[in-house]
Simulated assay, not measured.
Amino acid sequence: MVFAFAVSAACCLGIGFVLQQNAAQRAPMSDFLSLRLLLDLVRMPRWLTGIGMMVCGMVLGAIALSQGEVSLVEPLLATNLLFAMALSRWQTRQPLGRSGWGGLWLLAGGVAAFIVAGQPHGGATVTDPLRHWLIIGIMIGGALALAAASKRARMSIEAPLLAVAAGMLYGVQDALTRVSGKQLSKEGLTAFFLSWQPYAVLALGLTALLFVQSAFETAPLRMSLPALTAAQPLAGIACGVGFLGDRLDTSPGALAWQVTGLVAIVIGIVLIGRHPAMPSGTAEVDRVRDLQPH
């Protein structure tokens, strides 16, 4: 069931990201990294559909995280790029070609290699609060630093910086979602609402959403989605192993395959993200506009 919910979540997320980017490209650049961007986008039906798909993906992902370890669920969520690729390929009618198929097999094979070699399983949750806050602080601080740097960066790296920042926040959000789910099942609704984690999940989600939409607004999907998709599982796995007590096989052979799997995932993500089927910017937006009824 963990696999089913995680892959279903990835499907919803991938489709949702494409629809959101289609709409965000039309937003005025004056809204960059401003809450006004979300207020403008909320009036676009395509964006609302994309957000609806993303919310469905997050709910399914939360169910998967409540049943399985973060280190298991995060690599599966990274397959959202395969579904984004499928929708983009349908929109653009581009064949996959060698790079597309290569990226697909590297991503799928990398996820399988990491899970089979690592055998993620639960352990005792780390109780040291300093370790919790250190890891969370590094992730959130790094994400905010990247977002600040994106304001001064060249246009070509602005979107990837924001996407990595969003991916780091989403990784922390997934870890805290698992904590909140455990708390709800063990301690009940009152303790759930009195704890800080659910509110941190909402704050992280809203901030990451602003970063993602700003990245989608400033550059083609191929410039942002690969960075987002690669950063989220790495951040989530770091949190899972760092303070949630996730355990991985640490024998030399297993570690080698895990590293190989993670490298294959990142390379596959980059290859798929840079494929011509991915929306390339204003030309794609203009094509979508032309297809709409007047």
Score class of each variant (00 low, 15 high):
residue 1 M to Q: 11
residue 2 V to W: 01
residue 3 F to T: 04
residue 5 F to V: 06
residue 5 F to L: 15
residue 6 A to F: 11
residue 9 A to R: 10
residue 14 G to L: 11
residue 20 Q to Y: 01
residue 20 Q to A: 07
residue 24 A to D: 02
residue 27 A to T: 05
residue 29 M to C: 04
residue 33 L to C: 08
residue 40 D to F: 06
residue 43 R to V: 02
residue 45 P to Q: 13
residue 52 G to I: 12
residue 60 L to R: 05
residue 66 S to A: 15
residue 66 S to E: 06
residue 73 V to P: 06
residue 73 V to I: 14
residue 79 T to Q: 06
residue 79 T to Y: 04
residue 83 F to S: 06
residue 84 A to E: 02
residue 87 L to G: 00
residue 89 R to V: 10
residue 89 R to P: 00
residue 96 L to Y: 12
residue 98 R to L: 11
residue 98 R to K: 10
residue 100 G to Q: 10
residue 102 G to Q: 06
residue 102 G to K: 01
residue 107 L to N: 05
residue 107 L to A: 09
residue 109 G to D: 07
residue 110 G to D: 11
residue 118 G to D: 02
residue 123 G to W: 14
residue 123 G to F: 15
residue 131 R to M: 10
residue 133 W to D: 09
residue 137 G to M: 05
residue 152 R to T: 13
residue 152 R to P: 09
residue 156 S to Y: 04
residue 156 S to H: 04
residue 157 I to P: 00
residue 159 A to Q: 02
residue 161 L to T: 03
residue 162 L to I: 06
residue 163 A to V: 05
residue 163 A to E: 08
residue 164 V to G: 01
residue 167 G to N: 03
residue 173 Q to G: 04
residue 175 A to N: 05
residue 179 V to M: 08
residue 179 V to A: 10
residue 180 S to H: 04
residue 181 G to P: 05
residue 182 K to L: 10
residue 193 F to M: 12
residue 196 W to Q: 02
residue 203 A to R: 10
residue 208 A to W: 04
residue 214 S to A: 15
residue 217 E to N: 15
residue 228 L to Q: 12
residue 232 Q to T: 05
residue 241 V to F: 04
residue 242 G to A: 08
residue 245 G to L: 07
residue 247 R to E: 10
residue 248 L to T: 11
residue 251 S to N: 09
residue 252 P to K: 04
residue 256 A to S: 15
residue 264 A to W: 00
residue 264 A to S: 07
residue 265 I to E: 09
residue 271 L to S: 07
residue 272 I to F: 00
residue 274 R to Q: 07
residue 275 H to G: 12
residue 276 P to M: 09
residue 277 A to D: 03
residue 277 A to G: 11
residue 281 G to N: 09
residue 281 G to R: 12
residue 284 E to C: 04
residue 292 Q to I: 03
